Simulated assay, not measured.
Amino acid sequence: MEQGLALHHIGVRFGGLTALDDVSLRVPPGRVVGVIGPNGAGKTTLFNVICGFITPDSGSLTLDGRPLRPRPHRLTRLGIARTLQGTGLFAGLTVLENVMAGATHTARAGFLPALLGLPRSDRDEERLRREALDVLDGLGIAGHADAAPGTLPFAVRQRVALARALAARPRLLLLDEPAGGLGAEDIAELAELIRRLPRRETDPCAVLLVEHHMDLVMAVCDEIVVLDFGRVIAAGTPDDVRDDPAVTDAYLGAEVDEAAA
């Protein structure tokens, strides 16, 4: 049976605009797959299809070979977690509470015991707290557990957002431009974190990465899919994609044009 997430001939249209056209890709367990392309290539639409925010007009999704019809509020129960552009953290919660919020779907008590403050709810909260601290410690930011996110440097807030996603113990992590706003040193540290995720002894997860920073993509991805005007124009290893003339014309060439403008 085919393992992991697969998209089969996905098509999405918005009126007369074709956002995705016959897009297929796979994210097997233990792999990091990158999606790149110029602005307007369809990358965000692709993520929104996987998350259930957009229903495709054609094609299908499967998870471990079984039909997948994702819904945003059910993603974590399917083992899928997503980070957002920016950080998307809750300003009124501490770092620890933000990370605990990412794992609430694993709570056993349910809504009523939590509302009434019953012992079973207290046990759940203590477990979530321990697990959240473990995740923060694994990312090297446990010392910020009691801080408000808004008081922290942006690079640390990015790690908190990643910790919140990982607290859900996903089998597949969707990273939406995680290097945005980071400096070169922070991007290098992020690359090391991403490379480790599929190979962790505890709770390993595959990664689907949408990113503009080519150095990060080339450093962490096992396979790269290149979109242009909603179509896949290249797919393969980083070396394959780097040497593909279509990619140079559509994506790398676009960066050169922007730099010269």
Rank of each mutant, 00 (worst) to 15 (best):
M1C: 08
G4V: 06
L5C: 04
H9L: 07
H9N: 15
I10N: 02
F14T: 06
F14L: 12
G16V: 04
G16M: 02
G16C: 05
A19G: 07
L20D: 00
D21N: 15
V23Q: 05
S24F: 02
R26L: 00
R26V: 02
R31L: 00
V32P: 00
V35P: 02
V35E: 01
N39K: 05
N39L: 00
G40Q: 02
K43N: 00
L46V: 01
I50C: 01
C51K: 00
G52F: 08
G52P: 03
I54V: 15
I54N: 02
P56G: 12
P56S: 09
S58N: 08
S58M: 00
G59Q: 04
G59M: 01
S60C: 08
L61M: 12
T62A: 09
G65S: 03
L68P: 04
R71I: 04
P72A: 03
R74M: 13
G79P: 06
R82D: 07
T83P: 07
L84D: 03
G88K: 05
G88C: 09
F90R: 12
G92K: 13
G92I: 02
L93N: 11
V95M: 09
L96I: 05
V99D: 01
V99S: 05
V99P: 05
V99R: 04
M100I: 15
A101R: 05
A103M: 11
T104I: 14
A107H: 02
A109R: 00
F111P: 11
P113E: 06
P113V: 01
L118G: 11
L118H: 11
R120D: 02
R120P: 03
D124Q: 08
E126K: 15
E126M: 14
E126P: 03
R127M: 11
D146V: 10
A147T: 07
P149T: 13
T151L: 13
A155V: 11
V156K: 02
Q158D: 06
Q158S: 15
R159A: 10
L162R: 03
A165D: 07
A165M: 05
A167H: 06
A167N: 06
A168V: 05
P170Y: 07
L172P: 08
L173Q: 03
L174F: 08
D176M: 12
D176K: 10
P178F: 09
G180T: 14
G181T: 08
G183Y: 11
A184V: 15
A188V: 15
L197D: 06
L197C: 09
L197R: 04
P198T: 10
R199C: 00
P204F: 12
P204A: 11
A206W: 01
L208E: 03
L209E: 03
E211V: 14
M214L: 15
A219Q: 14
V220E: 07
C221Y: 04
D222C: 13
E223W: 13
I224D: 04
V225E: 05
D228R: 07
D228P: 11
V232N: 08
V232F: 09
I233E: 01
T237F: 14
T237W: 14
D240K: 12
D243T: 15
D244H: 10
P245Y: 10
T248R: 10
A250T: 07
Y251H: 07
G253V: 04
A261M: 08
